[in-house]
Nucleic acid binder design. Structure first.
Length: 435
DNA sequence: TATCGTATCACAC
DNA sequence: CTAACGGTGTGATACGATA
């Protein structure tokens, strides 16, 4: 039997959030544009022009607001429904061409190109690139490597002006192709090597990938642990991270937000927490899972002593694992009431679902091995279908509240229209939001 | 001493 | 209102408690 060596592609949308906005609003093209995180907190996506102007990733918006204004730039609140919808369209297009796909994040996926020879793999990559540009106006970079880590690195190299044409192939064997180029790259660009490990490696005289691959694997394992060892082996072309077509169900689900305004009242917290539980419950049911533990937590300021950050949380183990938002909300409110302190200025709250088991476990296995479950809830299924069809929260639980504006709601003053997912936001007089 | 559970770190995006 | 700084998830490691 013929054994293939592995060849993996990584498709990565360039400046994804900004590119989505530009796809629907051509006036944003060729301009400094940034997209902001929740509550318009900090910069999470930048157009090329914004990068060139020196606006850093992750910087708080208020620090660059004036600068952006000076260069005739635009800041937008993030519009997740739009990005999620664009993402699923892009992923579908890629999947139609290469069925072996692992979706890694909202803007990235791996594709298994092992069946293709080197030259044909490049052809496939260019075709993906062209299709996404034509069909969705989304520019992407594609990296090809013998392993996922090589492919990620290759896509980073493909983004550089010198790496042009948007595709970079590192899957050729050492000594050929762009292998020499790879050895010259900074370790900081490698998937899995963040700020801290970069610092520690540099102290040890390791600056480039070539330096790193020159060190004995023993030394890497000893001083930096199993993760970096795996990374090193992947860079050498030995697969250590499996290609996973189907995603693993989550082991934990977190829903939390910083509040847009000042929150003091228990009632507002109940609304916020109920909303978080609702979102978490939706994700739980998407995974066909049940949760058996729920935790509620908050962060707050004491106005009498503003320097001290109060934070507290508590959790409760459910009598039976469930995916029922109503049950989960009941417990969550109970926990919230036990940790609520009057007089604090609440900044953020959240909930965590854990002890997650598959929903098809309806009976406890050998005693104590699995939590008791009461099975998936039919009512929830119906609710999900209604909300999917008629829009989020068409049916919801009462404790979420029904105000248009509440102090705990996020602020996002500069959000674009939900072009693809909200009929009510379609511009009436002009197609595609153009003028 | 081995193991367990939990907190913290580090990273990604 | 004159400060403001994101959310979700995983895995490894460190550490204290426990048997």
């Amino acid at each position: 039997m013929m054994s293939h060596s592995s060849r993996i592609g990584l498709v990565d949308c360039n400046n994804f959030y900004v590119s989505c906005e530009q796809a629907f609003n051509p006036r944003l093209r060729k301009r400094p544009v940034v997209v902001l995180s929740n509550n318009d907190g900090c910069v999470v996506s930048r157009s090329t022009e914004a990068k060139q102007a020196g606006i850093p990733m992750g910087v708080p918006y208020f620090q660059i607001r004036q600068q952006l204004y000076n260069i005739n730039g635009v800041a937008l609140s993030s519009n997740y429904p739009l990005y999620a919808d664009m993402s699923s369209r892009a992923m579908r297009l890629i999947h139609e061409q290469i069925p072996q796909q692992e979706i890694y994040s909202i803007d990235e996926c791996f594709v298994d190109l092992s069946e293709f020879a080197a030259d044909q793999a490049l052809v496939e990559a260019f075709r993906i690139r062209q299709r996404l540009l034509q069909c969705l106006s989304l520019p992407v970079s594609i990296g090809i490597g013998a392993t996922k880590t090589q492919a990620k690195l290759a896509s980073a190299m493909a983004k550089k002006p010198s790496g042009s044409s948007g595709v970079c192939d590192l899957s050729s064997p050492p000594g050929s192709g762009r292998h020499a180029d790879m050895l010259l790259q900074s370790i900081r660009q490698v998937w899995g090597i963040g700020r801290r490990i970069t610092e520690r490696l540099e102290v040890n005289g390791v600056q480039t990938i070539g330096d790193l691959l020159g060190r004995p694997e023993r030394w890497v394992r000893q001083h930096f642990g199993i993760n970096l060892l795996r990374t090193v082996q992947e860079l050498k072309g030995q697969p250590r991270l499996p290609f996973q077509t189907a995603p693993e169900p989550r082991k934990q689900i977190i829903a939390s937000r910083s509040f847009g305004g000042a929150v003091y009242e228990l009632n507002d917290l109940v609304e916020a927490v109920s909303t978080f539980v609702t979102r978490a419950g939706e994700r739980l049911r998407t995974d066909h899972s049940l949760a058996s533990v729920i935790e509620v937590y908050y962060r707050a300021k004491n106005l009498a002593a503003p320097d001290i950050i109060h934070s507290d949380g508590a959790s409760i183990i459910l009598a039976a694992a469930t995916d029922d938002t109503r049950v989960l909300t009941g417990y969550a409110i109970e926990v919230l009431e036990s940790i609520y302190q009057p007089g604090l200025k609440y900044k953020k709250a959240g909930i965590v679902l854990s002890g997650i088991v598959p929903a098809n476990i309806r009976q406890p296995a050998l005693s104590g091995v699995y939590p008791m479950t009461d099975g998936p809830s039919q009512a929830m299924r119906v609710m999900d279908r209604i909300n999917q069809r008629y829009g989020r929260d068409t049916v919801k639980i009462a404790s979420m509240g029904a105000r248009d504006k509440a102090p705990w709601h996020m602020s996002c003053s500069r959000r674009s229209r939900r072009y693809t997912t909200a009929l009510t936001e379609l511009p009436v007089l002009s197609a595609h939001g153009m003028r």
